[in-house]
Write a protein that binds this DNA or RNA. Structure first.
Lengths: 123, 123
DNA sequence: CGCAATCATTTACGCGTGTAAACATCGATT
DNA sequence: AATCGATGTTTACACGCGTAAATGATTGCG
């Protein structure tokens, strides 16, 4: 089963650094999300059930480590969107943002560089 | 409120052509989705509540027209993903697909053309 | 006029989600 | 040993979603 948005917030903390205890996760995420301890615990348990994290005992508490990698998650999410909205192809997506004037100077420069690199490794 | 995936399937039909009756929508979408009449009606009612479509009476039935445009929808969805996963910037997204080798020849060609055009209209 | 067909509207139901309260456990402290 | 504090586990609850059955309203037909 897919991991939800609230669950992804917890994963984000673990992707930045792991292993971490529930308390540490709350400390990092609580301010922004205004979550209670119990909320984080619930999310962690759901992530455990989904095999997205692993827990190892550390004295009285658990330390959590991601099993699902950020790469895998990003891959799933973006492929889903791409398939649903752009026929699975990247260019139309970029064209969309281009039409909406949502390409920054920096984006354009980086895209150019990216294409250049693709060229270089071409042979 | 955001429109759900099943609702988006209905919207897709309306985006292709509108106005349409519930029956027509079912005819177009039923085979692929294996939905019953009632399912489509429910989705249409939810879309009405969300002000995503408009219904006008046509004799004994209604004809539905999209209020939310495909552009708006695509915009919301892709901006959401971009913000959540790539810090709101397009280049990292493309880089991601590039790393995953998910850029087709065609994509690359089109991206090149796109950047060229951006160049041209630059002044 | 009364009924069957045709639409639409309402209600339902199990499941996941966001959010947490309630409860259980276990080691430390009096 | 009884209690308290820290942790984790279970249960809860409202809401949206996917899917549809049940019910209601309208109208053409016999």
């Amino acid at each position: 089963m897919a991991i939800s948005e609230a669950e992804a917030v917890v994963m984000d903390v673990l992707w930045r650094e792991a292993p971490r205890s529930a308390e540490e996760i709350l400390a990092e995420v609580g301010p922004a999300q205004d979550w209670q301890e119990g909320t984080v615990k619930s999310l962690l348990n759901r992530l455990l059930r989904k095999k997205a994290v692993h827990a190892e005992r550390d004295g009285r508490r658990y330390l959590y480590t991601p099993l699902l990698t950020r790469e895998q998650y990003v891959q799933q999410e973006s492929k889903g969107l791409l398939d649903r909205l752009f026929g699975g192809r990247v260019a139309p997506l970029v064209a969309h943002f281009s039409e909406q004037r949502k390409l920054s100077k920096k984006d354009i420069a980086e895209l150019r560089k990216l294409l250049q690199e693709l060229d270089d490794e071409q042979h």
